[in-house]
Design a protein around this nucleic acid. Sequence first.
RNA 1: GCUCCCUUCGUCUAGUGGUUAGGACGCUGGCCUCUCACGCCGGUAACAGGGGUUCGAGUCCCCUAGGGAGUACCA
Length: 473
Amino acid sequence: MRSMTVRTRFAPSPTGYLHVGGARTALFSWLYARKHGGKFVLRIEDTDLERSTAESVNAILEGMTWLGLEYDEGPFYQTHRFDRYNAVIDDLMEKGLAYRCNCSRERLDQLRDEAMKHKQKPRYDGHCRARDISPDEPHVIRFRNPDTGVVVVDDLIRGRVSFNNEELDDLILRRTDGSPTYNLTVVVDDMDMQITHVIRGDDHLNNTPKQINILQAMGAGLPKYGHVPMILGDDGARLSKRHGAVSVMQYREDGFLPEALLNYLVRLGWSHGDQEIFSIDEMIELFDIDAVNKAASSFNTEKLMWLNQHYIKEDDPKRIAHLLSPHMGELGIDPAEGPDLADVASAHQERARTLVEMADMGAFCYKDFETFDPQAAKKHLRGVAREPLERMRTVLGSLGDWTEESLHAAVQQVSDDLEVKMGKVAQPLRVAVVGRAASPGIDVTLRLVGKAATLRRIDLALEFIRQREANAG
RNA sequence: GCUCCCUUCGUCUAGUGGUUAGGACGCUGGCCUCUCACGCCGGUAACAGGGGUUCGAGUCCCCUAGGGAGUACCA
């Protein structure tokens, strides 16, 4: 057992996109396998034919790929394994550990109502246990759950949790239509795939004793379980679309880096002292399933933003440029028609929290803005700005060498000549050239915009001031 | 209803009987500064409530409250 290699799995049902909660569960499972030199298996639990779709499978695979949670085996599809499930059910039947049941919906409903009325847990009464129902008439197959005793789950995260068998139901293993149910398929798969550590959402904690009983009936060994708590929205309510992005892929669209999301997710419900920043290697080295919190945690986009900015800041400008390019495209910009995108990215790395913000901030390097930001224009494109701008226009017009050094010197020179602080010259110039009051250093800004566009935009700004004064006058 | 689980600053968390209850995000004061950021220095804010156990409890036990999950021929 000790020498057995660790095998974990992620087993989503393909009924939607990969959401952050699932992603975190997958991450923990993946980290555990990586940390222990084990295998990470991907299994698609698609036995719900009604709700499972191929699009969802693709969405999940896409999300995992983006996050870099590569799997070693799979994806295995449960719909391909019905023969195997049926063989197991038949075997359980032969051993008398399962039985046919043809109780009607009505009877079951009645049973349930009755139990509720008496403040009891609704539970199948075993009516068909002793009846001999013909295989030819419509029926389901139920598991013969032990009547007494307790099932103890030594959960890696929750600690010891015990359930009385009296609380447990004779659950359905095979439906009337012949298809196997969830609790049976998971157990068979975990056994067949030799999963050693079942790390999953804590909505499955209540299923665990039932699954353990089935596993024992099959004579299989038990994996270790770790039930990770769920993720809530900022308001403490269950995470849903109204909280903003819940789909992993939405975060890519919103300009987040996968490593930022991963770092955020690993710190949600887990920590290693005071450390906030974890590279993938550090996560693998330091992650410990025992240290995962028991309580649900709320998703906080502000902190994710901070991490995202951190990674944007740290990353190679070339990679940022590569990732930024599609976001530029969203703004109708072709980065090939202008300064090197890595250069633009580099200038904005300390300013943008997301790639979407960066694209917005850097757009001025590629195209003329439509209008001046009203606030910025009101404050900086006034009569007093005319002279500084005219002088800048003259100095820059004759500047042969368009470098940060010469540009900085030019602004400095005009400021000195006018005997004003640099801001009195740089700010109007900035608004003239980028349309708003914030941008990288004025020297960098001018260099990126280029001489022709700079001069053109200064003229536009001077015209703006003239018109404004005419209107006011 | 019943079973199971959870509960430290607004949020993520540290803390394993003795701490001025620490860090991070956010918010905020200041420094830096051509703007915005970055960076740096400082501030703000928490043990759900009540009983025990103990010389001593955020840490152990019980109760209450509040939250969550399950209770399907969904997964």
